[in-house]
Computed example of a mutant assay.
Amino acid sequence: MAKSVLLASFISVNATDLSAFASKIELKVECEDQDVTTFASGGWNERLAGLKSFELSVTWKQDTAVSQLDQQLWTLFGTLPAFEVRLSNAVVGTSNPKYTGNVLIKEHSPIAGSVGDVAEMDVSYPGSGALARATA
């Protein structure tokens, strides 16, 4: 089994590479579980998969300079831009799949932190529609 260390992950939002601003990326995929247990289930719960969903969480290092992170995310606030994430910024392939879809930019924290902290923001963007995984 291959192991990896996240050193140069890739994140693009609205077709713009924002990897230089991100220090943490988490793409979480899940499905609802629906209980279909009946009296004939032999005393065991039976489950089926229901609706699927995903969420993209990112820790951004804030940059308020003109045309940098703050301005780009502020412009996208309340919209559903496309995104792409990969474990590595290397070429997409069987050992470096890309995940794509649309997320709702539902939150933005232009100022967050305490005295002496790095200016950063932890955000979570819920997915809208399907999430795709591709190796080419």
Rank of each mutant, 00 (worst) to 15 (best):
E32W: 05
A132G: 04
V29P: 01
M121C: 13
G42L: 13
S124E: 07
Q72I: 12
S4Y: 13
H108P: 00
Q68M: 10
L73V: 13
Q34H: 10
S88K: 01
Q34F: 08
S67K: 13
V103H: 03
A40C: 06
V91L: 09
T64K: 13
V115N: 09
N89D: 15
G78F: 05
T59Y: 02
V123K: 02
P126H: 05
G78K: 07
L80A: 08
T100F: 00
D33E: 14
A8W: 00
L48E: 13
K24Y: 01
P126I: 03
V123D: 10
F39W: 04
P110N: 13
V103F: 06
V115L: 13
I105C: 09
R133C: 10
Y99F: 14
E46L: 11
N45E: 12
N45V: 10
A130K: 11
S53K: 15
A49F: 12
S95H: 05
E46S: 14
S4N: 05
T16R: 11
S95P: 02
N45I: 09
V85C: 01
L7I: 06
A130S: 11
V5H: 02
M121L: 07
V66M: 07
K24F: 00
V36G: 06
S88N: 05
V92M: 02
E120G: 09
A130D: 10
K52G: 14
M1Y: 03
S41R: 11
D33L: 14
M121I: 06
D17H: 01
T75D: 12
K24E: 09
L104P: 02
S95Y: 07
T64N: 13
A65N: 13
L56E: 07
D117K: 09
G129A: 02
